[in-house]
Design a protein around this nucleic acid. Structure first.
Lengths: 217, 217
DNA sequence: AAAAAAGTTTAAGCAAGCTTAAATTAAAAA
DNA sequence: TTTTTAATTTAAGCTTGCTTAAACTTTTTT
């Protein structure tokens, strides 16, 4: 299993989770390669039993592919916890650093790391960490964009794809687990004004879509 | 800089240190590739300024190549310290695991790791860890094979290339920093019998050549 | 239902890092 | 010094993962 292949499998998993289906062009876009490259790789992954492919229609991970994906994600998220908690690595940089480490650590190493970290259940962005059998808890989260004016919610996850949002939130003193209240909702551009214990900040529609919350805690 | 290139540079450095000169065939042997592959890569590294090459004669790292090598070695050894001290990763496995991590960690990450580890000066096999400027202390070590019967010495380094020696020593309770006495020396096969505080063990010529010691401490 | 557009796959070709085989150079032996 | 041997480099070719361009499906529009 090489880095490139692992990246394909991991991204098929996450696209499937987010969008519900995976196509050549979506995956190509995500991986920043041509559709032809994806098409090519998919037929290889199909031959080696990681992906079930129906040409021209789409594809999905097999059971084997799925557990491969969860194992990579597990490595990624455990490294994130380590980087943030022990090395004080900045929140917004943790993701891209873990992106490299995830491909360079044996299962044995990761088990020891998990033990050292005391079996964390979530990564620094609020994503669940699969155990070595691929099992994980899944919270039912709501995007902040769906919350109405006046409601009080708790931030449980901020997507880590783009560091921009993380930098903005950090700068304004908003963190995971914070409780916030929607003070204002501007229908024109779907932006929000929210208030936490310490601060009051403006949240664009784009940002509100990658912040996930739960209601009554 | 990719993994393969980093491996070439790192190995040129270590062969130079051990043997005093680097040739195509020695490097090929170390990297388990053909001489032709080495020849090819050396001319690339020469073009990009990491290596000074005199065709048919040999080659060596430039200043730029040297500091690249030290940076990779630094990463390798800091990871080794982490793996052993914090994850309780077995002594003899630490090397091969670090071999992968060294290529997947940014300079920034490594600085934070170094800080977390409290700026260790030696790795778990006794090799010095370069600081971020490439500076390191160098002990004058003597191979155990050069020590005469009756002498008492302290183990300061055990080469980590082959895990076999490390496993043997660990099994017999010999560790870095142990003080040992040469009880017997068999001239026939240059083997030794040595005694530490806790144990008495047989050391073959081969093993005695990769154990390094200092005399009076 | 036919035409146009969009998406996917196949084909041809490139770069990197490797291989084996042939050619070249240097070193050792005669 | 010439010959033989050993080491190195060059050449030709393979594989992997990519590219662009062409061919082919599927979907959407009219």
């Amino acid at each position: 299993m090489n880095i490139s292949t692992e990246d394909y499998i991991k991204n098929i998993y996450s696209i499937d989770l987010a969008v519900g289906k995976v196509t050549t062009s979506i995956l190509a876009e995500k991986l920043k390669v041509s559709s032809a490259a994806v098409s090519d790789m998919i037929s290889k992954l199909s031959k080696s039993g990681y992906v079930k492919n129906i040409p021209y229609k789409g594809f999905e991970l097999t059971k084997k592919g799925n557990s491969m994906a969860l194992n990579i994600i597990r490595k990624h998220r455990l490294w994130e916890v380590f980087l943030l908690q022990y090395l004080n690595y900045p929140w917004e940089k943790v993701h891209s650093e873990a992106e490299k480490l995830e491909h360079s650590s044996s299962d044995e190493l990761i088990e020891k790391l998990e033990q050292f970290l005391n079996f964390p259940k979530y990564d620094p962005h609020g994503d669940p960490i699969p155990d070595k059998n691929g099992k994980f808890r899944n919270l039912a989260l709501i995007p902040l964009s769906d919350i109405k004016k006046g409601e009080i919610v708790q931030i449980k996850k901020v997507s880590d794809e783009d560091p921009g949002g993380l930098i903005y939130l950090t700068k304004h003193g908003i963190r995971l687990e914070d409780k916030i209240k929607i003070k204002e909702r501007t229908e024109f551009d779907s932006s929000l004004e929210v208030e936490s214990k310490h601060s009051k900040i403006f949240i664009s529609e784009k940002l509100s879509k990658i912040i996930f919350v739960i209601k009554n805690t």
